[in-house]
Amino acid sequence: MNYLRELPKFEYLAPQSIPEVCEMLAAHEGEAKLMAGGTDLIIMMRRREVVPHYLIGLKSVPELNFIREEKDGGLTIGAMATSWEIQSSSLVRQRYDFLAKTAADIGSIENLHVSTIGGNLCDGFPCVDFPAPLLTLDAKVKLVSQRGERIVPLDGFYLGYQKTAVEPDELLTEIQILPHNHRYGGAYIKFHDRHAIDITTTGAGAFITLDSDGQTARDVKIALTTSAPVPLRVKGAEAALCGRKVTEEATEEAGRIASEEASPRTSWRSTAEFRTKLVQVLVRRALRQAWRKVTTSSSSGAAPDLWLMHPLDPRIGENR
């Protein structure tokens, strides 16, 4: 094992704009590493898992940090928006309370203020929390390089353990969520040993849009954390619910299907068997929570003026 060490020596670059970042990436391809919040990267560098010659700091690029509503009603989040900013954003809270809650429960408050959504997505670890709820929202990411820019759906963005679609010369600049024209509700529920800050043992996100009949699910998206080498959409479980009434039995069934689709691994942290059982329970709970939101009056139930959208706060709890 590698013991923690002092940080390796690197050249620190502080670009001011997206083009400048792309220029640096192109100039130092293979030798440069982008640093967003750095909460994971600094530890990886301490363990010499990553030893960049150039470290490109992104905190100095103001145009990467925003949360805005698009003209078409869509929501775009800049890669450098911090977990804190996302959880506090009234835009996010009003539309996707579960995304705000995911952000609020990413880690300690100290972590929230530094960790970013872009960094979280680009880590490529299956245990990080932002991908699953964003997968259920059909989010897309914008990747920019000197070669141009491209929009990539998050579904398909993850290629393998710690492998993403981001090319070495590319920068993930923003996350796009298209407007939803039907009533909807979402939830993300995770399990870990202690009551806060732990790495997610297993997590499940669900997002349901309601058909115009007001009775059945028009569309259902379900995604999992730490249940495969990558953040995983479980499309079989989704299909089982689409066009149906989301009854207790149906959620039970979807949970079962999801647990068959999941392929978690056994490690010293937890066993595949336990994680599979959790998938079943968490998917069911996430679906029920999402369905409750769809079928009750407000699609985001939480009080918008709360200091923190943390699931441990009983005012927004509902962990079951």
């Binding site: 620190y12 502080a14 640093m35 750095g38 909460t39 600094i42 530890i43 700091g57 905190k59 100095s60 804190w84 300690s108 408050i109 100290e110 972590n111 203020h113 530094v114």
Partner: peptide, 19 residues
């Protein structure tokens, strides 16, 4: 190692001084 940066609590062990 918590300190405040512009009023926000952060872990100073995970923050480059240069930033």
């Amino acid at each position: 190692c918590t300190v405040l940066i512009d009023g926000k609590p952060i872990n100073s062990c995970l923050y480059l001084t240069i930033e």
